[in-house]
Design a protein around this nucleic acid. Structure first.
Lengths: 270, 270
DNA sequence: CAGACTATGCATAAAAACTTTCAGAAGCCA
DNA sequence: TGGCTTCTGAAAGTTTTTATGCATAGTCTG
């Protein structure tokens, strides 16, 4: 299916269309050009032009191609390889996370604690370091002073002190298996210093649970050689969303400023 | 789907049409009335009349009904909040990724390119930087010389040079929306220098596609204020798994060494 | 066996979908 | 900045798809 689109140079509008079609893989062939246009938020002629850009004589031809490719496989009964088993398990984790988010109390409580903290330390060591960076990257766009702590060492405790003095009241801790000893120590120390610790971890009975003010559990995938952190990643972004919702006005302003700066510096393509 | 046809008293010709539609369940919605007629061996007006017999105002209405029943992922009813909608979409992305991994050709090709490269550069700028770090963190445990490039600037091109001289033959590029201009430039340059670039990106039509030797697409969630990268994260780990599979012996040895070291230094709890 | 009714396909009219043209807008390069 | 190219949507034009009238063949009933 994806190969159908390969090779062609596409305009931004066309990329939106492609994206929209890829997303609905199987059902795309059932859509008329006008319906695709509406879903992609573009004009109907753009859809025709998209088909032609791909080398088809027109939209109906593209649709036939979609039908032939998309309709084919659709085997959910069969033999899955190891990768598929792992990804399927991940999809189920997220499904469960979705159910769990039926009640947002814990998330909102955590969000309120974190938005109020200036600065806002984000702790994630070893395997969790990238997740801390990920959260920090986006959080910085809506919070004026996010501090990502992703390397260990004794200086961590100093930074904990400094942040506390600077006014930090809460901390986000990302603590995933295999639970780095150092992360646990920092959390314990933070609690002793009066921080309200929000912990994203892999289960409600994780070792950080006892020292955390709020525990946000999200399962970790363990079917491959290395752990898959999609659940905690999703949880982190849900938390960030809740932080934005909790404090919408400054968020919107900061995002607009970022957009303006990005455009000015031509950071992105498309 | 089958219920759609229930209740109505059908003529023999109409029964043939119904049978034909049921047989092609999923793809039926993509067919025009004339195509259905041909498949069923009846005249086109009979198909229209069939739709009317079922109580629809015309064939297009039947087609829409077919699409909604056959295509839809069967929503479980309730009112979902924004977070749940987003997580659900993520779960569906992973589901689709799972289908896509039914064929591992692209992943294996990518894995073979990457395991053979020493050093192995991993590029991920801006929002993709944490993902690069994540991949790099684990990849380092099974590959002797992984170099994570997660900050931009002109020195990137120098490092590209140095790695090439040092023997790198391939590079992993993580390029996600909004497609940092700098990432695209580096990939283009890398290709010109003879690197085989493996790109993990959000769709097969991403701007990196044209310069990549292998494109591994994985959808990005866009339902929240900020993007959710669970799909690319999962894809990255699948790729790493494939790299381990491609070269199992040294992998096992390095992992054991890591375990021994971790135990010695008491890195983890539990 | 005749008359009446239903079912079906053909031809064609109506409607919808698709393509093309054109003009405005946005980005690029000097 | 200003001219140039490229992209995009609105509207008009063209083709395809769908609906309907009509004639024929088959079937049931008396």
């Amino acid at each position: 299916m994806l190969d159908l689109f390969a090779g062609a140079r596409l305009t931004p509008t066309q990329r939106r269309i492609a994206h929209c079609l890829v997303e609905r893989a199987g059902t795309a062939a059932a859509l008329s050009s006008a319906e695709v246009a509406e879903l992609a938020g573009v004009s109907q002629p753009s859809v025709t032009r998209f088909a032609i850009a791909l080398g088809y004589p027109g939209y109906p031809a593209l649709r036939r191609a979609l039908r032939d490719v998309g309709g084919g496989p659709a085997d959910d009964g069969g033999e899955d390889n190891a990768m598929q088993v792992a990804i399927k398990a991940e999809a189920e984790h997220l499904q469960r996370l979705k159910e769990q988010l039926g009640s947002l109390d814990a998330v909102q409580k955590a969000a309120n604690l974190l938005v109020a903290s200036r600065p806002l330390p984000v702790l994630g060591l070893r395997a969790a370091a990238p997740l801390a960076g990920y959260f920090g990257y986006f959080a910085s766009k809506v919070h004026p002073d996010v501090r990502v702590w992703d390397t260990g060492g004794t200086s961590l405790l100093d930074r904990l002190d400094q942040a506390r003095v600077a006014g930090a009241g809460a901390m986000l801790a990302l603590v995933l298996p295999r639970y780095p000893r150092e992360s646990l120590e920092v959390v314990k120390e933070a609690r002793a210093m009066g921080y309200a610790v929000v912990a994203i971890t892999d289960s409600a009975v994780s070792p950080v649970a006892e020292d955390a003010a709020v525990v946000l559990p999200a399962a970790v995938g363990t079917r491959l050689v290395f752990d898959l952190h999609t659940g905690p990643m999703a949880m982190a972004m849900v938390l960030l969303q809740a932080m934005c919702d909790a404090d919408p006005e400054p968020v919107q302003r900061r995002l607009e400023e970022f957009e303006a700066a990005a455009a000015r510096r031509q950071l992105f393509q498309g």
